[in-house]
Design a protein around this nucleic acid. Structure first.
Lengths: 352, 352
DNA sequence: TTGAAAGCGCTAACAC
DNA sequence: GTGTTAGCGCTTTCAA
């Protein structure tokens, strides 16, 4: 009994198989399988007998065996290529995940969250995705040369990316993005309409398309702007504060700031106050995101560009699910979903 | 081509199998399998030939098939029974997850995070755990009658719980907990030693053992305390602020507060200031957790009970991995790991 | 060292 | 309706 053998020599609980249930119920495996999977086309009396047997034995289908034949997992991976210190401090992810979770639950699919902490993790996560543990993947926070989309494409794993990817690995790579450029134009246009003439911007990390696109929107409105008025930052509170201080040093006459995230805008507000500037009288400030927990509670409340983050998550999940569902047919072309750019709108509060 | 058939009619990329690699390399499936799994006992020349074939075909083993025979997944679930709004706002989880992630990476096991949002999710998560997708599970934030441990036990899934469970489902249910009671004694003892005589406490939700145990520690030091000095709260910032206001209303002469979390303590600090109390002169405050991002940055910096959260995560993972490893033998008794209570210590800063 | 062959537990034709 | 049967892709004896 000590050595492994072909016989079912298990350590803990002996998990019953379809076979065992079939025997106990006095039917064939096929019938048990039918009952377990909905029971369509099985006489009621038999069905009940089988159900009792399932109950009695505490039978739970072995997913590996099932997946092996059906090629479905009813699970979807969400991969976030960001240290968890950021994943867990930025409300952005939480909201996005909430949307995704809701949509997947409705489809009875399990959300599996994978965090890519450092470079070494890529291999393991890649193996996980390639190994067929999930039916599809939602990829987030991809930086410029992230290998994940290519990996997924290589093994044929359906994928939707959060945010516009830098380059399409795949002709029909699906993604969901906010209209970052349009949103930025809204913000900067508003400041210009207010009569501000020295409008600065605090950007996100420019190796992310969201940050780059927002800067492009800024430039759309101010094509001849002073480069001194552009401070590159990183979407965090600390970074935003630093950038604001820098701008103040470079151009003390700055009279407006478009910060590419609410977190950065809130830090800018604080730094401006510390430097004796009144908002919005001396300097008008506009953020981006409209995070409920931030924008409404700053002093003064933040004028910002609203994007519906939870809805983006929902959309991503829906896109993926539709692609998964649309597998079978030759009519793929008709049912193939397309990438989505969600709209933004300006929410005017007191800061600008 | 439109209908499903037994033939490999796939939609996207045709994923190569062992068979295909074997054919291309001109060897048997067994040999390919050996190479893929480390290549022990295969002649170098053959090994290389196989590796080239694997490379060329972009072969990735099908995990479902592998799991079906090995009964291993190299994946571990972390289940958090808490709405993500809390998971993502409380740094506690992030730290714990970091510890777990590190330990699992080292064992080349994939961390799979499952969030239980509402009651409906239990079924799906239960099915996921029972379905054999993971080798084991780490369970967090279990409330009083949480069905998860029983579910896991029922299907024989090795499990380690974060925090002491209310009742052991299983004789040798493993868990990792902080010495909550001892830590609370440290905190309250410190306040008493400072000469404080009207020491209040703000508790966590008393349906969680961590909160209940900390309250017990408080009572150990103050067995005859005034019940008016005890305010039940919920570990959040909002709750902590409310509780502090309440205490101030009930006992304006309060001269010390032991808050059962740093988040609550920081809110208490703010409320005390708003009520014109100086800390620590009028009211001394001690927290619990020693969250880097909170305790050191409050004004004044928080005296608190330190628990090494990341290490707890690490410990949980290690316990689980050891249990997983210790499966095979009859010597299970000797290698069986036992639950752990991690020590606490008082970190004295300016608030008490 | 290598290959042949027997399953792991399940689903899905297909036949009755 | 129900049972029989043939795999899904892999690992692992066992023999050569």
């Amino acid at each position: 009994m000590t050595e492994e053998s072909a016989q079912p020599e298990r350590i803990g609980v002996l998990r019953p198989t379809l076979e065992a249930v079939a025997e106990l119920a006095g039917v064939s495996r096929a019938t048990v399988s039918r009952v377990v999977n909905g029971g369509a086309g099985v006489r009621a009396s038999l069905r009940e007998r089988v159900q009792r047997a399932v109950e009695e034995l505490g039978y739970v289908p072995n997913q590996a065996a099932r997946t092996l034949v059906t090629r479905r997992n009813d699970a979807v991976a969400v991969v976030v290529a960001e240290p968890e210190s950021r994943v867990f401090s930025d409300p952005f992810f939480a909201q996005q995940l909430r949307g995704i979770g809701k949509e997947l639950s409705a489809a009875d699919s399990q959300l599996v969250l994978l965090l890519v902490e450092d470079t070494g993790d890529y291999q393991r996560v890649g193996r996980y995705l390639a190994g067929g543990h999930v039916d599809g993947a939602l990829l987030f926070s991809l930086h410029q040369d992230d290998p994940l989309p290519a990996m997924a494409h290589r093994v044929g794993l359906p994928t939707v990316i959060g945010g516009r990817p830098w380059a399409a690995t795949d002709r029909d790579q699906l993604y969901v993005d906010t209209d970052n450029r349009g949103g930025a134009r809204l913000a900067v246009g508003h400041l210009a309409a207010l009569g501000r003439r020295r409008i600065a911007t605090i950007t996100g990390p420019l190796d992310q398309t969201s940050a780059a696109d927002r800067l492009d929107g800024y430039r759309d409105i101010l094509p001849d702007g002073d480069p001194q008025l552009i401070a590159e930052s990183d979407f965090t509170q600390e970074g935003g504060g630093r950038a604001m201080a820098e701008l103040l040093a470079r151009r003390p006459d700055v009279d407006a700031v478009f910060a590419a995230s609410d977190l950065m805008a809130s830090a800018a507000l604080r730094v401006l106050r510390e430097h004796g500037r009144r908002v919005p009288e001396d300097v008008a400030v506009v953020g981006f995101d409209d995070l409920e927990s931030v924008a409404a509670w700053t002093d003064p409340p933040l004028t910002t560009v609203r994007q519906d983050i939870e809805d983006m998550g929902r959309l991503m999940a829906r896109l993926l699910l539709r692609r998964l569902a649309g597998n079978g047919g030759a009519d793929a072309a008709r049912t193939t979903p397309a990438s989505v750019i969600t709209p933004t709108r300006l929410v005017v509060r007191a800061s600008a």
